[in-house]
Nucleic acid binder design. Structure first.
Lengths: 190, 190
DNA sequence: AATTGTATACCTACATGTAGATAGATGTCA
DNA sequence: TGACATCTATCTACATGTAGGTATACAATT
């Protein structure tokens, strides 16, 4: 019965560590100290670091997908959905210096085990696809105006979001992310 | 006489390694293998990794500043200067999976020695300030249109550039960076 | 001109700690 | 009893340095 808890605790701890420090700057020992089990126990649940990484990205993607689905089903107009998107990522980037998991792992990309890299690539693509649909909707309903294709605009928007997190943290002004991201939505409204 | 060469070789090698793998995923040994001197010799020139990091960021910032000054002095209109800015960063992100040094280090931010972190923060700010001036010029000369302040627009543009690099590399399509970034310029032209 | 001093740029060898991983023992509960 | 979860103990590899020595060059001293 402890199993579930331990696994969840490991994932929670590891996720926070990756979001703050990246894939290469956290260790089983860090997790073990936070969770209160020995390193060997983490290997029991996640034999290799790659296994842990894959589990992390999948769980995160699942969570995000659920939230994105909810936003679409709420049925607001395109700008409102983009604002909800921003809000979601703002909640993911809590006060304590975290970045979006995918963003951090994208930075570590060339050093990631291929299995983890593939999961990250797919997660990013999911976000882009969701955004593309919102941009298409905004164009159709006349609430967003832009010159590029919906796909290009979606990728650009996502780039701005990920880059915005990076910069806001480096400047030490996490609030700046919200301003930046909501400003980007406003800039596209009709 | 070897001295200058060795130091430059160390910096060149270390810069490429940081741009590809980040601050935490390269070692003195990696550099030593590439340069062909022993690890201890690198410590001779750069006593600690933080010293090496600071030297790296300063040299890079210097290079970028020289290029940006040149672009301003060439005196094109604002969109042209932005395109040159994109071109500069495209050249920095060569074919081999590199990212802008500041972008990589921004991702590693919480794990950086404070001395290195401060240099990165300053470098990013230099870019933002340069961009802000271009946006102000574009607004004044009527070649760029945007709704936010020049400062906000500059930070958003920079975020898009840094985030665009990250995504392009993760997708494995480095060419996408150019499309994305030049598209962002086009979207702002009158 | 030969000798000594001094700085540079390396080197070998080692110290200390951590990372990721494994083997095998122990406890615990249905 | 047996499966599951965790432990202790250990391994190999590597990271970041430090200690101390060597080779070379270029002065200044005699």
């Amino acid at each position: 019965m402890e199993e579930k808890d331990t696994v969840q605790n490991i994932l929670d701890s590891a996720q926070a560590l990756v979001q703050r420090r990246g894939y290469n700057a956290f260790s089983y020992k860090d997790v073990s100290l936070e969770v209160g089990v020995r390193g060997a126990s983490i290997h029991y649940h996640f034999p290799t670091k790659a296994d842990l990484g894959v589990a992390l990205v999948r769980r995160y993607r699942n969570y995000v997908e659920v939230q994105l689905k909810r936003i679409r089903e709420q049925g607001g107009d395109a700008p409102e959905q983009l604002r909800q998107f921003v809000k979601l990522y703002q909640s993911v980037v809590t006060e304590d210096g975290r970045l979006c998991l995918n963003c951090m792992l994208a930075a570590d990309f060339p050093t990631l085990p291929e299995s983890v890299a593939a999961e990250v690539r797919y997660s990013l693509e999911c976000n882009a696809v969701w955004l593309e649909r919102v941009f298409a909707q905004g164009s159709a309903e006349g609430t967003l105006q832009f010159r590029r294709s919906a796909s290009e605009e979606a990728h650009a928007f996502l780039a701005g979001i990920e880059g915005g997190m990076l910069l806001a943290r480096a400047y030490g002004t996490p609030r700046a992310f919200e301003t930046l991201a909501l400003g980007a939505v406003m800039a596209l409204e009709v």
